[in-house]
Design a protein around this nucleic acid. Sequence first.
DNA 1: CATTTGACTATTC
DNA 2: TGAATAGCCAAAT
Length: 102
Amino acid sequence: MEATKDQRIWQVVLAIPKGKVASYGQVADMAGLGRQARYIGRALGKLPEGHKVPWYRVIRSNGQIAFPEGSSTFERQKCLLEQEGVVVVEGRVKMSQFRWQP
DNA sequence: CATTTGACTATTC
DNA sequence: TGAATAGCCAAAT
């Protein structure tokens, strides 16, 4: 458990503005992990319950959500995204409009 | 621009 | 060692 990387990831995810989304690759790059996008998902999955990390703002590079439809996690993510103003359809986000562009 | 397939890497248990 | 994973990329459609 390299908490340093996880913490950096959380920090980056926390930096995502409301109403926008970022891809795992983007987060990985910003966190200094480079191309280890998979580690992001791993780290987010290990998060404790009381975290304030908007993990739901993190999606795939194509704007598609990482979970299968109908899953609790998916539903939660979709609901939270819509709450932020992001439109989610068929498990994917409207790409060219909500992607966080630093 | 949107979608699908296939091949790849890195981390973890 | 082997298997699994909240991914990414490129190419083709």
